[in-house]
Simulated assay, not measured.
Amino acid sequence: MLETISAYLTLSKARIVLLVTISTVIGFFLGGNGIHSIPLLMFTIVGIALVTAGGAALNQYLERDADAKMHRTQDRPLPSEFISPSQALKYGINMVLVGLAVLIWKVNLLVSFLALLSAFLYVLVYTPLKKYTWWNTFIGAIPGAIPPMIGWAAASNDLEIGAWVLFAIIFVWQFPHFYPLAWMFREDYARGGFKMLPVIEPDGKSTFRQIIWYSILLIPVSTLPTFIEMAGQTYLFGAVILSVAFLGLGILFVKTKTFANADKLFKASLVYLPLLFILIVFDFKI
């Protein structure tokens, strides 16, 4: 029983579901000037969690053959044959449909549309593009940045400038977050037939440029909440410190080109975003 639960959590990419849920809650809090309806928040969380889990399952269904060739993913439920392709397909479709039904019934149509758009881009655009072009990362960053907009729309039934600022921050953050991982596992991605930037350009020059460019861009973008009067000076100071430190780790990796520093940058990216969220909630202007 526990093994089956663990397999379905892996199929659902539980860590990604958690990150999406946190981003959604942040958007809900900011879009609603605080949390004024716990039931509405709960229905939003349940709906988006189900849609995200279903999308993750469908992604693994489509990539099951590639996953079997990659060391990093060969133990996933589908390549290891713990879950059959037909089971994964049914699970993924049902989770998406039930999640959308919850959002339509208990939240609003704007949220439902955003959730459907995110799932569509992730499963039917980003996933197949990984086999054809390195631009898949750019496309994949779009659904990755939609969750806070979903939370905002759930709380306000609108998409004001603050929602777009949150989208921009997470969109830009994803490049220095993902590219170190893609560089570390470039040989594995090549085995799977994925056209990631470090795979099609093994010397890494374009990958390193992308990391630096987006890390630099993240500095002004991360300060936007203060300039639209969504957050105060404490947030501004903290955002600049975090973003400059993050850029410093990116420069260190690009200079040394070592696995250890790529891993440091990737792990730092996992700390950067939650800290930024904490700062914006702490210094939020209601």
Rank of each mutant, 00 (worst) to 15 (best):
I38T: 13
M70C: 08
P39S: 01
H71E: 15
E63P: 05
L41N: 02
L30Y: 02
G47C: 02
L30I: 10
L58S: 02
F43Q: 08
F43M: 12
G54D: 07
R76K: 14
M70E: 05
A56Q: 09
G34V: 05
F43T: 14
L40N: 13
L58R: 00
V25R: 03
T73K: 09
S37Q: 00
G34W: 07
S37N: 04
D65E: 15
E63F: 13
G54W: 00
P39N: 02
D67V: 04
M70L: 10
M42K: 07
D75V: 06
L30A: 00
G27D: 09
D75H: 15
I45F: 10
L62E: 12
H71R: 15
R64F: 11
I45Y: 04
L62W: 14
I26S: 06
Q74W: 11
N33F: 12
A53R: 02
G47Y: 07
M70R: 12
T44F: 00
A49K: 02
H71W: 13
A68H: 12
Y61T: 05
D65N: 14
G47M: 05
H71A: 15
V51S: 07
A68I: 08
Q74I: 14
Y61A: 11
A57G: 13
A68T: 03
M42E: 13
M42Q: 12
M70P: 06
